[in-house]
Simulated scan of single mutants.
Amino acid sequence: MSEESKSVIVLLGYMGSGKTTVGQELASVLSYVHIDLDDYIESSENSTIAEIIDQKGIIYFRKQEMTHLEMLLKRSEKTVLSLGGGTPCYYDNMNLVNKCSNAASIYLRANVPFLTDRLFIEKEHRPLIRSIDDKEELAEFIGKHLLERSIFYDMADFTVSIEGKTPQQLAQEIRTLV
């Protein structure tokens, strides 16, 4: 797969795996535009994801996610697209990504202890885990989620382990793959 043949590089993985940070770095390295799907939806809806879910429900949000994903995959402008952690797991989103001939998907994989350490210190900013006060309980929650989501994450074209790597190193590694 050559860099020229893929106009959209899709980053996916669990929350805290660095999809946005790595996406920004990769876009800079490749001279692509970076779009974070959650930010894009918030801008389109003029509300935060939490507000959208509170006011219109999770089903409405997931439908918006799918609609915007489908539209963004059709972009002719070279784009690095960072998905929300749950995006690949709903509707037919991963098949949508995989059927897109101009897209390459990268799973930013991290293990449970790594994610637990990273997310525990920033959980106040993560509505899904905000109420979890115990690190062991958080690890159990992440492990269960990863198990449920792995079937979708593993559908990515490439998998990159993120532990012990800087965003710059990850961007360079991904650059060699796409």
Rank of each mutant, 00 (worst) to 15 (best):
K74Q: 12
A50Q: 04
T48G: 05
I49M: 07
T79C: 08
T79Y: 14
I59R: 06
H68W: 08
M66K: 09
Y60E: 12
L81S: 03
K63R: 01
T48Y: 09
I49E: 05
K78L: 00
K63P: 09
H68Y: 09
H68M: 05
Y60R: 01
I49V: 15
S76Y: 11
D54Y: 09
I58H: 03
E70W: 04
K56P: 05
H68V: 10
T48N: 10
V80C: 08
D54I: 12
T48R: 08
E65C: 08
D54S: 13
T79M: 06
T67E: 14
I58Q: 09
I53V: 15
R62L: 00
E77N: 15
T48I: 15
M71A: 04
I53P: 07
L73I: 07
T48E: 12
I52H: 04
A50S: 14
T67C: 00
F61Q: 05
I49W: 00
Q55H: 01
L69Y: 00
L69H: 00
T48C: 10
T67N: 11
M66S: 15
L69V: 14
K74H: 11
Q64V: 13
E77R: 14
L72C: 06
L69P: 09
Y60K: 01
L72R: 03
H68N: 07
E77K: 14
E65M: 08
K56V: 09
M66T: 15
I52T: 02
A50K: 04
A50H: 03
G57Q: 02
I58P: 04
T67F: 13
T79F: 13
I53N: 01
K56W: 04
R75W: 05
T48K: 11
M66A: 11
L81N: 07
D54L: 09
L69S: 03
T67S: 07
K63Q: 09
S76D: 06
Q55M: 14
L81H: 07
R75S: 08
D54T: 15
I52L: 03
S76C: 10
T67R: 15
Q64D: 13
G57M: 01
I58V: 11
F61E: 02
E65I: 12
